[in-house]
Every structure is written in C-alpha cells, then in structure tokens.
Design a protein around this nucleic acid. Structure first.
Length: 211
DNA sequence: CAAAGGGGAAACGAGCTGCT
DNA sequence: AGCAGCTCGTTTCCCCTTTG
C-alpha cells in the first residue's frame, strides 16, 4: 500500500479508538460525530482488509492485526505531531524549560535524587516539577502537555502513549521477630492465611500484588 | 459545473441489564 | 425465561465542500 492511498486522518481515528475502545467516545474526543467515526472505521477496514475492532460487551476490542498496528501508528503520529509543533531545537545545556513529572511516593524518594544529579550535570538550568500520578486527570494532563512524563503502574495509559518498561520490582513480607510465621518458610498458602496490611495507592501496583 | 467524498441526522439492529 | 428499556454501532439518505 502507498501512503497516497490512505487518508492519514483515518489513522488518527484508529489511534483514538485504540485509546477509548468505543466509537462514540472516540468521536467525542475528536470532536466529530459517532457515525463519522463509524464510517471512517469502515473505510479503514476495507483499506487494510481487516476488521480491526470487534464489538464485544467490553467495548470495541482490537484484533491482533490492530494491536500489531497500534504502536507503529502511534509512533508515526507522534513524530508528525512533534514535527508540526516544534518551535526550537532542545539543548539541555542551555534550556530553562520546566518538565513536569507525575510520580508516586517511591518516585520522589528513589528516582528524583538520581534524576536531579544527572540534571545538575547535563542541564543545570532545567527545572523539574513533580505531581502525584494518583490524579484521575493524569491521562488528560498528559494529552494536553501539562504533564511530560509519568512513572508508575498506569493501566489507564495503555493506548496512545509512549511507554517503556523501567524495572522489575519484588515485594517482601515484614513481621515481628516472635511472629509464628517467622519459624517457617513463607508460602502463598501461609501468606493468605495471615492477616496483613496492604497500602492501596493508585499508580503503585500494591493492590495488584494483593489481588 | 458535475462528480466524489465526508459529515450529520434519523432509523434500525444487536446486545446487555433489570424486572417480573 | 421473557419482556422492556437502554446503550451503542451500523446503515441510509441528504447536504456541503472539494476537486478536476
């Protein structure tokens, strides 16, 4: 397929559908009507010879081909967006720009000191501002550029954003020295039989471990 | 100026949910 | 189990804009 054969706006709609998983929601986000998105999807289905999205009780589920397409399309649209909106080139050594990071408490404690050390060395005039990534508006803030980067377990950002796996994280159990569990190996059954405290905090994944 | 294409409105249909 | 109501995607038709 040649690029001239495809309306790039169809890829914008495809990208939004990957995010919203609903035609009407994508239409609202893009500022067009739901039939318009439906028609665009129809044209895209014919062009790409794939259903792309299947209607299910959970919304419009992307086909394997659509999932395969999602990342390169998102990357390409991001590149085009950056190219059209760049005003000046970025020079870390002289830039006085403020970057806003959405992080968890562990982000503040662990990442910031490491980051600030590097920033002091390579971009001394840069300003780093942080916000908690527990905010329900994180997705919107990222989309409009109020937040530049978010670190954490953020399933609400699965589609439409650049993502990178940073590290693997394991948990440990803590209990008093005299606790009955101290005399035997910790197993899943033993763990489940004991009372324990889990600090549920959005963006940390602690609740996922308990589940 | 005619043809083509895209968007909006209305109608329709499928699937889900709650109630009896 | 069956029905009604609701939500949401699709289809059809019409209008407007663009293009050659």
């Amino acid at each position: 397929m040649q690029l001239r054969d495809i309306d790039l706006n169809l890829l914008v709609i495809f990208n939004q559908l990957m995010i919203d998983k609903r035609v009407s929601a994508a239409a609202e986000t893009l500022g067009i009507t739901q039939p318009a998105v439906s028609n665009a999807l129809k044209r895209l289905r014919v062009l790409l010879k794939d259903e792309l999205f299947l209607r299910t009780s959970r919304g419009m589920e992307p086909t394997p081909f659509a999932q395969q397409l999602a990342e390169p399309v998102n990357y390409a649209l991001g590149t085009i967006h950056s190219a059209l909106n760049q005003q000046t080139s970025f020079d870390p050594a002289t830039s006085t720009r403020t970057f806003t990071l959405a992080v968890t408490d562990i982000g503040d404690i662990y990442f910031l000191p490491v980051l600030m050390e590097e920033v002091m060395r390579t971009a001394p005039q840069l300003c780093i501002s942080t916000v908690r990534n527990t905010a329900v508006s994180l997705k919107e803030n990222l989309e409009v550029g109020k937040v530049d980067l978010a670190i954490g377990l953020l399933p609400q950002l699965q589609g439409g954003f650049f993502q990178r796996h940073l590290f693997k994280h394991r948990y440990v159990c803590m209990f008093r020295r005299e606790h009955p569990a101290a005399s035997q190996p910790m197993t899943l059954d033993l763990f489940q039989s004991l009372e324990h405290v889990v600090v549920i905090s959005a963006g940390t994944g602690h609740g996922e471990v308990d589940t």
